[in-house]
Structure formats: structure tokens, C-alpha cells
Write a protein that binds this DNA or RNA. Sequence first.
DNA 1: CTGAAAGCGCTTACAG
DNA 2: CTGAAAGCGCTTACAG
Lengths: 352, 352
Amino acid sequence: MVVKRGSRRRTEGPTVADVAHAAGVSPMTVSRVINHDQRVKDATRKKVEVAVAALGYVPNAAARALAGARQCRIVLLYGNPSAAYLSEFLLGSLGSARENDVELIVDKIDPLEKPVMLAARLVAHRVDAVLLPPPLCDDAELLSALQKCGLAAAQVASGQPAPSSHAVLIDDEEAAFTMTQHILARGHRRIGFVAGDPNQTASHLRRQGYERALHLAGIKPDKKLVAQGNFTYRGGLSGAATLLDITSPPSAIFAANDDMAAGVVSAAHQRGLDVPSDLTVCGFDDTAIATTIWPELTTIRQPISAMASVAIEILAQAVRSKRPLARAQPQHVKLDYELVVRGSDAAPQLKT
Amino acid sequence: MVVKRGSRRRTEGPTVADVAHAAGVSPMTVSRVINHDQRVKDATRKKVEVAVAALGYVPNAAARALAGARQCRIVLLYGNPSAAYLSEFLLGSLGSARENDVELIVDKIDPLEKPVMLAARLVAHRVDAVLLPPPLCDDAELLSALQKCGLAAAQVASGQPAPSSHAVLIDDEEAAFTMTQHILARGHRRIGFVAGDPNQTASHLRRQGYERALHLAGIKPDKKLVAQGNFTYRGGLSGAATLLDITSPPSAIFAANDDMAAGVVSAAHQRGLDVPSDLTVCGFDDTAIATTIWPELTTIRQPISAMASVAIEILAQAVRSKRPLARAQPQHVKLDYELVVRGSDAAPQLKT
DNA sequence: CTGAAAGCGCTTACAG
DNA sequence: CTGAAAGCGCTTACAG
């Protein structure tokens, strides 16, 4: 390995030139072998491969990138998700971004900026794709602005993925159905539901799952047992207040996310009700708050970190694909959820 | 922007040459401005900055890496902070990492791995520096292992920064003093305190601030009014239970962080006490939970995101510094906190 | 304080 | 099927 005097050489490893020299070919041929170019003669390829192995050659990523390999810059746009959700989402994205060699930029959306402007700004900053966690994943205007600018987008945890964008999700309806069945199996018949933000499509799916399980159990859904909660702790607090103060209150409340479930638990405590002996409370998401409060919440575990990770991977692949066809072929991936039983559910009290 | 015929130019964006042309300087000068070289004349810098902004210039990372710019790879090591804390910390780090062109790797610590092994692994992965949020910022063994391997470290929010490492903090003692004075000013005389994790130095400082304010008001600290809380929601719950069940319970409780304060509020509710009319509850940190629960917490705002951001900046500077002296000269930066008055504090009830 | 030259390690585009 | 040349966008080292 020849290192010239006064060279600015920093890296210690061998280069294409070193390999070429060792194999008795030109650097160009080494490059072809590395990139699996079909046109290299088998004998030549062998020689190069031997040299590569002997020298322990590893291509320099920066040089490849500079010389023409396609870069990938993805923006993670976030609106106002709960801190626990964002935190897990960030962790998943970060790991995946490193593995897939994508540059990840994290940016809070400015509600005052028009989606069209935003999209234009992203393009100006050489962004290739956009990652959209809830609630942004359901912003139709944003999605269409992005598409018009030719930016790939991945919706994470949207209840209603657009056909034109990539999406990673769980089956919200089925998960809510599963949770409701679990509560029914405990023996509850009057099960309250605190619904999520009506602007997020997942909210409706979760409610549908709840109602389907009820139907299947021969229970007619009662509108008085459904309260609005907006996916916030305060919404859970006020929603539970509504449900708990009706004539024949529910013995269990299923909140469509953990933040609201925490609010429900607090409302129960304020009324002197014990959870779970007086009231069963279940959540959805399994974010940090589920194991922070007491009792710990029985909930649906949504693989937030994995969902973010998969979304980055899909986006990176789409961006780097040579064929424009692949960019026009959005993928929708469904991941598994899991029912996590902890301490906030129990059989209802016997009426005496 | 001139694009030559037959050029292999891939990226559409402007280059140093374009910016140089627009600003009427050489590419070299543009490079200097971008890299915050001190020697550029202010007027020249201005011109370049204007051109950069006008063209929307973004440096090409691959080219920088290839050309030999000193890279800076920082690992953000986290243990088990609250999700809300981590989320804000991550956001601050990410933004700053981009601005300072540092490669940020986020890694959860494995409690089973020996600090010495960890440090060795980091060195093997070409890591230059380590960012330590609480509770890791107070891990003396880790700190010393890092130092022995020649890794720069920045402790964030430690109550007792090591002389050999960089640190960014607020004055915890003074902040707790301020909060206690605020509660005293409301008219409270029996003020409970829920202490944080004894393994984190900040816990002790916060308690000291609380006691100093009491002394200054002529109140003798009462051991029965101090409970252990470990910085967790559950610790706040049980700590408050202890304080609220003594013979003459406090009319106000100051918890050394928001998670515990949330637990205190919940404990109060379980006892049928209203917050704040029956019990004043104050927190510390101003993480997301402070405005999630109801009533919203009066607390001390700790600029978590800014602290992370400053720490990254200091680390990047130290790593890139040509003079080894600067690396041996750790900086300790103190940022401002703020008392945020919201809905969880009020004057005590009149005894009748 | 600023600039002209050379080079980082690889690949594209063109010849042969 | 293989190679010599040029260039990707930036920064280092050297002058002035």
C-alpha cells in the first residue's frame, strides 16, 4: 500500500488502487467486481476477489456516495403526539436510519405554515422522503402537497392509509376487538368506551372493534356508554366523569389510548373507586405511561419503535430504487399487536 | 448555477462554488464560514451567509467526509429516564447534532455490561464523545472508564459535575429554594417534600434548597414532612400517602420532579382531597406530564432541550479543537431555570 | 484574512 | 471485456 509523502490520507485501509495493483488490473475493473457488473470475465473477477480478500478491502462509503451513489435524506415530521409515543418513535427511527445509511432530520411542524409551503421547503432542502407519525399521518392536505412535490411519504399508524403513500400499521379494529373480548371474558357486560380524536382515523377503527365484540356477545352498544376523549389525559378524565355519573354506570372502561386510560383511573380515584376491584380500566398503545401509573395498565401493545423502523426501511428502498416504477408502488405493511394484561382489569363485583 | 454539458452532476442543489460565485469570494472562504473558522472577516462572513441562505445551500456530507473534515461522532447514552424527559432531550440533541454536523448515535445502556467494556466498544466504533443525561450523568464508574479511554464526556443536569468532564446544568439548589419560597409566599407553613432518587446528585441539591428556604422563613425542617420518592410516579404516590397520613399533615407538597408530583396529585384525589384547594402540589422539570394531568402543575421549568443542545455543541467543539489543551479544559455551563405557575398551587384553607 | 492548487476514493462516460 | 481520463463537492496544506 503506497502512501505518498505529505498525503492527506486519513483512513488506514486499502483503496481500489491497492486492490487493482495487487490483482494486476485497473481500478475500474475492481469497481466493476465490487458492484457485481456482469461483464467482467470470470477469471478476472476471481483475481480481484482474491486480492480484495487478501487485503481486507472495504469500500469507502463517502467516496461511493460522492461519486454517484444515491443518497437518502428523510424528514421525520411530528405534530403533537404524546411525549411517550414520540420518544419510542424516535428511538426506532434513529436505529433504522443508521442501519440503512439514511440521513434523518427531525422537525416539528408549524401549524401556521401551509402544507404546500412546507413541501416546497423540504424539496429545497433536498429531502427525499417524509415520515409521518400520528396525528400527521392522517393529514390529507399535507399528504397531497407532499405527493405533488414528488416526495415519498410513509404514514405510520394511520387507520386509513392513502393508496399513493407507503404505510406501516397494525390492525386497530381487530386489536380493539381483542381487548373488548378480553374484558367481556372477565364477565363485564356494561363496558364503557372513551373514544379518541375524531380527526385520527384510528379512533374510528378502535371504536368499531369495540362495538363488533359487543355485538358478537349479544350486547347492543349503548350510546350513553361512549364518551369523547380526544386521546388526551384530560379527555379521559372528563370522559370518565360522564360515564361514571350516569344512572347505571359501567363496571369497565376501555379507553382508546393509554393517556386517556390514565385519566380514567384518576377520575375513578376521585370518586373513591378502586381500580380494578371497583372499575376495570384498559388502555391502548402501551406507551410509558401504562407502566408509570398505578395500577399498571392492561393495554394493547403497539410496536411503535418497530413501526418507525420499518417505515424508514421502506422509504430508503423506494428512494434508492433505480426504477421509477418502484417509487410509484407504495407498500402497506401490517405489524402484529399484542394484548398485555397487567393490573388494571378484574372481574366485576357481584351485585348484592 | 452552471451545469456543464455531459456533467455527471446528480444533485440539483447549489455547491460551494455556486455560493462562492454568488458571494464574490473563493470556495475556500465559503468552506471557512461553514466550518465556523474564526479568521473570516465579519463582513465577508455576512456576504457568504446571505448567499447560503439565498441559494438554500446545504453542504454535501459525503464530500466533506471524503475531503477529510474532522468527523465527530457522539453517542447519546441513556439509562432509564422518564419518557417525557428523554423525548425532549432527544429533540434538543438531534437539532444541535445537525447544526454542528455531528453524527449522533443513540444507545440504551446495558446494565450488565461493565463500563470498561462499554468504553472500549465505543472506542472501537470510532466514537469521539459521549453525552450523558440523568441518571447516567452521575455514574462515577462510567465517567472514569470513559476518561481512561480518552473519550470526551458531557454530563447533563448532574448535581455534581466532575472536574474532568464537560457539564451543562441548572442551579438545582437555587431552583428548589425559589419554588419553596413561592409556596411559602402563598401562606403555607407545613410544606411536605418528596425527595428524588438518592443516587442522583440533583436530588440532594433540591432538598437543600427546600430546607434553606424553610430556615430563612424561620421554620425548622421536620423530618416527618420529608418522604422518599425516587423520581417515579409510584414513589410520589407512596411518598404522598406517608405524608398525608401523619397527625398534622402538610397543606402543600413539593415533589422533586413532575412524575412524583403527578403521583402526589393522584394520592390526594384518592383521599378525596382537591388540588389545589385542599392541597397544593408543586413539581420540578416541566416535562410533558406537567401539562398532561389535571390540574396542570406549578413547577420549575428546566430547559432540557437547550441543555442537550449546548452539551452537543461543547462536545463537538472539544473534539474538533486542534489544540489538545481545549480537550483537557472541560467547560461547565449553567443555564437558567424558570418558575412556572399553573393550577396546582393555592393559599392554604383557613383553619376553622 | 483570503485564495489557487491538489487530492480524498470512488464511479460515470467514453474509448478501444 | 477492459482501461485512461475526468469529475463528484469538499477540505487540507501551502502561499501570500
